[in-house]
Simulated assay, not measured.
Amino acid sequence: MNILLACETGSRAWGFPSPDSDFDIRIIYIHSKDWYLSLSEKKDSLELMFENNEIDITGWDLRKSLRLLQKSNPPLLERIQSPIIYKADTHFVKEIQQLAGSQYSRIATIHHYLSMAKKFLDELESAETYKLKKFFYALRSAVACKWIVEKEEMPPIEFKKMREGLAIEEKLLKRIEELIDLKATQSETYLHQGEAPLFALMHSCVALAEEQRTSLPASNGSLKDLDAFFLKMVHRYDD
């Protein structure tokens, strides 16, 4: 097995970690050619946990990853954009990012972020206080919906790039920065309350997504391109 990409995802890669945030390490790996030339169904993922569950490592085989790429799977799209890289085949990363752009489906991707935004909003608004971690999960998902509706390219993994690339009121952007600074000083158990203007922003993003999601375009990508890339990578690592 060869690692093609090992990177950070989650709050550290998104740009709003707490001091005690876990490390969410995600891997894309490839086997030798003979591993794929088998009639048996083999495990195409891995899961590892270390240091009292503070280091979470999961990985997907290349073939599984490309099948997910064809569906514009958001966790995969985030994985290949991570700003925190532990190990990478740089040629692979550049090529899969290009493929992701051609395979990108706005209508498929928005369903993921819309579902997450609605789920976390419901949980947040059902209690008087809440964890900032959950608040930012909801906020980032809602803003991602706005990005997908208004822009043709994939939403960036880094929340700063996402929110600064959209028309959001300056006072809201400033408050988001203040809360990110606060989160950086507080443990995951810290409880927060209020922030009505940001909740209103989230609801407006969700409403926009609900209105526009069925009219968004699907992917124009080609399975042939994914097959060709898969074969090229298998041959590259079988030498």
Rank of each mutant, 00 (worst) to 15 (best):
L121R: 12
L121W: 09
F120T: 14
N220E: 13
M116A: 02
E169S: 10
E78W: 08
S102C: 05
A207S: 13
P197F: 13
R163Q: 09
Y104C: 03
P74Y: 08
E128H: 09
L173V: 13
Y237L: 07
L139Y: 12
K160C: 03
D22F: 07
L4F: 03
A200K: 15
A138T: 10
G165I: 14
S21L: 11
E51Y: 14
A209G: 02
P83M: 11
F199K: 08
S38G: 11
I96S: 04
W60A: 04
D225R: 10
L216N: 03
L48M: 14
E125R: 11
E164C: 07
G221Y: 02
E210P: 00
I157E: 02
S40L: 14
L172Y: 10
R63V: 05
L5N: 05
F16W: 13
E195I: 11
E153C: 05
Q103N: 04
L173F: 07
Y36L: 06
D238P: 05
S21K: 10
L99I: 08
S115V: 07
P74E: 00
V93M: 06
E128R: 15
L198M: 10
S105N: 11
L201Y: 05
S102Q: 15
L99C: 04
I3W: 09
E169D: 14
I85H: 05
L226D: 10
A218I: 10
I84C: 01
T58I: 08
F199G: 03
P83E: 12
A13G: 00
A13N: 02
G221D: 01
S82R: 04
L226G: 07
A108N: 15
S141F: 06
T58Q: 09
S102D: 13
S115Y: 13
M154S: 11
R67W: 07
I30P: 03
G10F: 12
M154Q: 14
I3A: 05
C205A: 04
F229G: 02
P83V: 13
V206H: 01
L208P: 08
L124F: 06
K161S: 10
H235N: 14
V149R: 01
P17V: 12
L173M: 14
M233N: 04
A6N: 07
L216R: 06
F159Q: 06
Y86M: 06
F120A: 03
L39W: 12
R12W: 00
L191V: 09
H192M: 11
E178A: 15
S222V: 00
L62A: 03
